[in-house]
């Protein structure tokens, strides 16, 4: 029963990792950009949530209503102001610029909030649970997983059913021809980053409610998101959810064996899948 419990906790944790991964996957899909600062942006969102809850005295979920648009706006400005200049055939500029950004965000957070771990207070929600078949499931992990499913379904809808998604796919296919269709790729990229950081805002606040956080943990969150993307298969949003679930389950089961094995177990599963299925478990079937 303990093992089953660990497995289910891991699956629910996977929802959070899928949210880490969704933003990463989205911007890679649209503009082939891998954002090294992605994890630090998640942590930034957590701190923005923390400040909002403290200053306005509101619940973290209410704070989300402010943090989401703020992060989206930041994403648009960041993309148009800096990241668009790095896009081209050369791999180095986007990688090194986002790496620099990662160091800047991390140290700015250290400067403002210090290295002390912080946590957001979600009140009674944090301890509430339901009993299902003898297992006690936390409401918060269940909600996190539910939110992840809804967000991924929403992204899937935007990508394949709306004019914005059509523009994303067209620009991703062929930037020049997309320009001929009246699409300004710089604006489209800005919107993609805005959407990615809106998802990141949700991920950051859910992270901040679930565990304590400090400015240095961004790199680890980037890695979890990245592992979920690769396990699931590049360019497949539902695969990303599956990747997150596999990673989450590996971590909680690893921790069950030995607490020191929690993260290592996740990495080992990732490397194992990379060894046997380098394109991930659910690679996108190209048309």
């Amino acid at each position: 029963m303990d093992w089953l419990n660990a497995l289910i906790q891991g699956i629910l944790l996977g929802g959070l990792y899928a949210l880490f991964a969704a933003g990463l996957s989205l911007i890679f899909g649209v503009m082939r950009l891998v954002n090294i600062a992605h994890g630090d942006l998640i942590v930034l969102a957590a701190y923005m949530g923390l400040t909002t809850t403290i200053v306005l005295g509101v619940h973290p979920f209410v704070a989300m209503l402010l943090v989401i648009p703020a992060m989206a706006l930041f994403g648009y400005v960041l993309q148009r102001g800096i990241l668009n200049q790095t896009l081209g055939d050369d791999l180095l500029p986007p990688l090194l610029v986002t790496f620099g950004l990662s160091v800047i965000i991390q140290n700015a957070l250290l400067e403002v909030y210090t290295a002390d771990p912080q946590k957001m207070d979600a009140g009674a929600l944090e301890t509430a649970s339901v009993s299902v078949g003898g297992l006690s499931l936390g409401i918060l992990p269940l909600m996190t997983f539910g939110i992840a499913v809804v967000i991924i379904a929403g992204l899937q809808f935007i990508f394949y059913r709306t004019a914005l998604g059509r523009a994303f796919r067209a620009v991703s296919d062929n930037q020049d021809i997309a320009q001929l269709m009246g699409l300004n790729r710089r604006h489209v990229f800005g919107l993609a980053m805005a959407l990615a950081l809106a998802v990141t805002a949700i991920a950051g606040i859910l992270l901040g409610i679930r565990t304590s956080f400090d400015p240095s943990i961004g790199g680890g969150r980037l890695i979890f998101g990245f592992e979920a993307v690769i396990i699931g298969g590049l360019g497949n949003l539902w695969g990303t959810l599956a990747g997150g679930v596999i990673l989450g389950a590996a971590q909680t089961l690893g921790a069950k064996i030995d607490p020191g094995w929690q993260l290592l177990a996740g990495h080992i599963v990732f490397l194992f899948i990379l060894a046997i299925r380098p394109n991930g478990l659910f690679p996108r079937i190209s048309g």
Binding site: I82, G100, S102, I104, N107
Partner: peptide, 8 residues
């Protein structure tokens, strides 16, 4: 932060 900005 300055170092990161200079690199960018």
């Amino acid at each position: 932060m300055v170092l990161g900005a200079v690199a960018i």
